[in-house]
């Protein structure tokens, strides 16, 4: 479904990504694991078109998308949930959802505000509250709901568990499993191995902008050496 091959990206002179490759199959949850500053966010931003990669090939459902502008990539059915959440703080919950709304597409679950409020009951109780007056957990729910309004076939989730209370992290894991049930493909970036293990089918480890490991989540769980080398602080 989503294929990234030989990706290189720079911020000014700094070489951030070096030959990054990543693959996400239909209906699968793939996690990109790595420490702070390893290049996880840059990889996701390159895929959605917010960072222009210097080199490399990105295909989505067999179509080259590198070089396209972000809105065209989004319209192909690829959703992006940023790490900083980037809620429109002046807009209400309903208005935030409206910004994300796109026509429904074949082969993807179709979302409406009401359906999303069943998935995120908290949001349904604050439809007219401005985004700026919501808690971090509520904002995280809203940013995912907003992206789902675009009826994507695949979503990129950038560190969804970051800064959330443990009980909310549990909810988040349940939500991701539910989205997978709906037939959505998910690519997420994470530092939280425990959280990743509870949702992901496969894992890729990135360190200093290079891919160090790719395999199934179960294999990674069994491999203490790899985990110690790249993931523990």
């Amino acid at each position: 479904m989503l294929r990234v091959a030989g990706l290189h990206a720079y911020y000014g002179q700094a070489h951030i990504l070096s030959d990054v490759s990543l693959e996400g199959n239909a209906g699968e949850v793939v996690v990109l694991l790595g420490r702070n500053g390893a290049g996880k966010s840059t990889t996701l931003k390159s895929i959605i078109g917010l960072v222009r990669p210097a080199q490399g090939e990105i295909t989505f459902e067999g179509r080259r998308i590198d070089g396209l502008s972000a809105h065209r990539i989004a319209r192909l059915g690829l959703g992006y949930v940023p790490e900083e959440r980037r809620i429109f703080t002046d807009l209400t919950v309903m208005e935030n959802l409206e910004v994300g709304r796109q026509p429904s597409r074949a082969g993807a679950p179709a979302w409406s505000p009401d359906r999303l409020f069943r998935l995120f009951p908290n949001l349904g109780e604050m439809r007219n509250r401005p985004g700026g007056r919501m808690s971090g957990g509520e904002q995280q729910m809203l940013t995912i709901a907003r992206t789902l309004m675009g009826n994507p076939r695949c979503i990129l989730l950038d560190e969804p568990s970051e800064g959330l209370a443990p009980v909310i992290v549990e909810q988040m894991a349940a939500t991701i499993r539910e989205l997978k049930q709906e037939g959505l493909s998910v690519v997420l970036s994470e530092q939280n191995l425990h959280f990743a293990a509870s949702v992901a089918d496969r894992a890729t480890i990135i360190e200093k902008g290079r891919i160090r490991y790719t395999g199934s989540m179960a294999e990674l769980q069994a491999n203490d050496a790899i985990r110690a080398q790249y993931l523990t602080v």
Binding site: I48, A70, H71, R75, Y80, R86, D90, Q102
Partner: peptide
Amino acid sequence: TRWGTLVRAATQDREMVGALGVNQ
């Protein structure tokens, strides 16, 4: 209007509006 909502959203974070599929 939807247009107005998009304008207000873009006033705050136009890049994000683009990433949600709106042609800026």
